[in-house]
């Protein structure tokens, strides 16, 4: 059980990077960017190709980030310059990337077994031997530590970036484009930057996930936007949004919580094929929570004062 939870937490940390990317578009820019379904794979593909080619895995992960920036740029240009609605721009990039990803990898999947990944050096640390003797899967510990490091670096960077003049203009663009233009900021540029950053993070996350699962597959992005949204919403609901720090923390914790939930329902015997249906239903319920709440409140009100309403409005004619 400990190993299952440990595995879920470490995987959650890798997905946390992706979740922060989704948060940038979905919450800060107020755009549902579907291109991440393709970008995640692009990142995984870039990383896998680089690493199997004998490259340094950290540089490979960084290359994935760069590729992601480029993907975000494409979606951004489709949306801002060609005036294609954001949702459709994302879908176009997503579909286009399917072919691009196959081109990058040269085939539908690349295995990453017996190669040096970003997790390998940490797995070789001396204290790992002791953990292994206690029955703990050392690979999970290595992923946990690496994931934690990456998540901290990304969180600190995002906190800084969205605190600058530029970052604050991007946040304002998601709030009110009219106002931002009136303050002399080119909103197109802000949307471009936000989409690039978001997709960059998603691609980096993809490269890390590929190294974790030891393969990159052209299908691995399917449904990732829903997983990202689920993590964002679970994080916000359970861990709060009081400050920007809190939001970033909530994203990581949301991604981890999502992974733990999935690990537990699988452990409880749910068919793995039903996972995506389960995720979709979870997200739908989370998104509908405000509606449920409002409905519940009106219901409660009408239960409390039915007699009064009936008497007051009794027909006289």
């Amino acid at each position: 059980m400990l190993n299952i939870i440990l595995g879920a937490i470490s995987l959650g940390l890798l997905w946390a990077v992706m979740t922060m990317g989704v948060y940038i578009t979905y919450r800060l820019l107020d755009i549902a960017d579907l291109s991440v379904e393709g970008t995640l794979v692009t990142g995984a593909a870039m990383g896998a190709v680089w690493i199997t080619g004998g490259g340094n895995p950290w540089i490979g992960t960084f290359m994935a980030l760069l590729a992601g920036l480029l993907c975000g740029l494409v979606t951004g240009l489709l949306h801002t310059k060609l005036k294609i609605p954001a949702l459709l721009s994302g879908i176009l990039t997503m579909i286009a990337l399917y072919s691009v990803n196959l081109r990058i990898m040269g085939k539908a999947n690349i295995t990453l077994l017996q190669v040096e990944t970003v997790f390998s050096p940490i797995e070789r640390l001396p204290f790992m031997q002791g953990l292994a003797e206690q029955g703990i899967i050392t690979k999970n510990v290595a992923i946990l530590l690496t994931g934690l490091l990456v998540v901290i670096i990304v969180s600190v960077f995002l906190y800084w970036f969205f605190g600058t003049e530029l970052g604050s203009a991007i946040r304002a663009t998601g709030n009110n484009q009219q106002m931002v233009r009136a303050q002399g900021v080119n909103t197109d540029t802000m949307i471009l930057l936000g989409l690039m950053l978001s997709n960059g993070l998603v691609a980096m996350s993809g490269a890390l996930i590929a190294q974790n699962q030891s393969y990159s597959d052209v299908q691995m992005g399917t449904g990732s936007i829903v997983i990202g949204l689920a993590s964002v919403i679970i994080g916000e609901v359970l861990f709060g949004t009081k400050s920007f720090w809190r939001c970033l923390l909530s994203m990581s914790l949301g991604a981890i919580t999502y992974r733990i939930i999935i690990a537990l329902v699988l452990k409880a015997g749910m068919n793995a094929n039903d996972l995506k249906l389960f995720t979709a239903i979870t997200v739908a319920i989370c998104l509908a929570l405000p509606q449920f709440k409002a409905y519940w409140q009106t219901l409660k009100k009408s239960m409390q004062a039915p007699a009064k309403g009936g008497d007051g409005n009794a027909p006289t004619a």
Partner: peptide, 19 residues
């Protein structure tokens, strides 16, 4: 204060300085 800071920089380049 963030809104005011956005307005104070009207017509200026948005940089990576603190907002």
């Amino acid at each position: 204060q963030e809104n005011l800071a956005l307005a104070l920089r009207r017509g200026k380049r948005r940089t990576l300085r603190w907002r």
